[in-house]
């Protein structure tokens, strides 16, 4: 499985036709096909290309929703 650095993940921000990837719990998910991540923006609160592990604690949904999306790899630890 591909390993992503934070820089590589940051590049997948969903802008200008790029893929929209987000990380959670060490996994990198491809959310490009989700209407709720259009243009890399999610509910005016989050942007793609980031590790949202901490942010999900505050979100009005759990990680089950992320499991609908394909896993593209794992996020390398610093």
């Amino acid at each position: 499985m591909r390993k992503f650095t934070k820089e590589e993940l940051a590049h997948c921000d969903g802008k200008d036709g790029r893929q929209a990837y987000v990380a959670y719990g060490g996994k990198v998910y491809n959310v490009s096909d989700s209407l709720l991540w259009k243009g890399g923006d999610h509910q005016a609160s989050h942007t793609a290309g980031q590790d949202l592990t901490d942010a999900l604690e505050e979100a009005p949904h759990n990680s089950e929703l992320l499991e609908e999306f394909p896993v593209m790899g794992i996020l390398q630890e610093d």
Binding site: Q43, S45, E58, A59, P60, H61
Partner: peptide
């Protein structure tokens, strides 16, 4: 919708 309005309330 429930998630969305919970978010706005928060």
């Amino acid at each position: 919708a429930v998630r969305g309005y919970t978010h706005i309330c928060n």
